[in-house]
Write a protein that binds this DNA or RNA. Structure first.
Lengths: 205, 205
DNA sequence: CTATGATGTCATCAACTGATGACTTCTGAC
DNA sequence: GTCAGAAGTCATCAGTTGATGACATCATAG
């Protein structure tokens, strides 16, 4: 009977399950690394959050740094991350969508491992490079295309500035830099950022 | 002849000088904390950078945290920081000036201890609060006044968003998130940010 | 049932950190 | 000159961290 079990059904409660343990570690790592970054998150803390012995990090991922890399790779950075959790790699359409999704995600889950890696220079170089490349491909590239299509000059630079500015707002909100910024609704602030960052008639030559 | 020495001239080379030692520690702390933040900067590293025994941190500042607080307090966050290093507490006139000064300073000196404290949640709470309060008073307040004078709605929130966005760009540039952003001239990017963030005709009702 | 590999537990190591206090060396007043 | 205090040096402590390998326990094929 165990052979024909639908995919969504609860897995058999094996008392030892390597896949489940690995996933628990990865999820805990995404959460902790995403909140506190690389250096200030300890392997013991991750193990406790996952309900698992920290030594298993070495078994399943190799090292703390490798676990962080896995956490970055597993982070969703696409258009449908919020709406359709099962569909992956849906590219963004425009800056407005990027803004909305980023603000919603950081409001729910905190900065996340990718943003934390970018912001802290104590993160191992390899991780920082991977995080930056990922962000450039998933967030900056679509926005740059949009700017280029609109005929703006320096579309690539403008996209990089826009994304950096967006990340600053997202970071400032989730870390509570200022009172009103911390308290405001994610959608409302997304709208305000869209209004502010939208390259209007002044974007051209 | 030593009695009438102009201010810029080299100080008398006392082999032991508490004030000079204290200042060396403070300067080294501003540099290191400003580059790597609180946790990942060690007292031994600061001592080495200052050419001084790390134990003197305890003597002159009390503790590592107290030294960080002194570094935040000593950081210039005013309009004339770049132009007139001796005059202090000159308030900013408008958002454009804030943008220009912040971009120039972070390009020369890196993020700085205040921004690092805000960005990292491993910084002691007391330091984070002090840094946020300082930034709110020195950067956000003038911009909010400008927005309010221009008749924009939610001037306080808009100012907080604008400053957070600016800090994102400054951080992204000095930490090298993206290629063009890293390579661009500080003044040029300041102009681009001014153009992008300037609340034009759409700021009103 | 039993043997074997997979899975999980535990103690421990070496490196590093901030802090501390005893100690030495210098400076300036008298 | 000398002496008291200021300034600087040094060894060391207790705590924490990531990593490691020996060991214990479980699941399952045969």
């Amino acid at each position: 009977m165990t052979g024909a079990r639908s995919l969504g059904e609860a897995a058999p409660p094996r008392r030892r399950d390597a896949a489940a343990t690995r996933q628990a570690l990865l999820t805990a790592a995404q959460d902790r690394f995403g909140q506190k970054g690389y250096e200030s998150t300890t392997t013991r803390e991750i193990g406790e959050a996952a309900g698992v012995d920290p030594a298993l990090i070495a078994r399943y991922f190799g090292s703390k740094a490798d676990l962080y890399l896995a956490a970055v790779a597993a982070e969703r950075l696409d258009a449908d991350a919020t709406v359709q959790p099962d569909r992956t790699d849906a590219p963004f359409d425009d800056l407005a969508q990027v803004i909305q999704v980023v603000m919603q995600r950081t409001a729910r889950l905190g900065p996340g491992p990718t943003l934390q890696a970018l912001v802290r220079d104590d993160t191992p170089e390899e991780i920082r490079v991977a995080a930056a490349a990922r962000l450039a491909r998933r967030l900056v590239a679509p926005v740059a295309e949009e700017f280029a299509a609109a005929g703006a000059d320096r579309p690539e630079l403008r996209a990089q500035v826009a994304v950096a500015a967006l990340l600053g707002v997202a970071l400032g909100r989730s870390m509570g830099w200022f009172d009103e910024l911390r308290a405001v609704d994610p959608d409302e602030i997304a709208a305000l950022v869209v209004e502010t960052l939208h390259m209007g008639e002044s974007a051209g030559t």
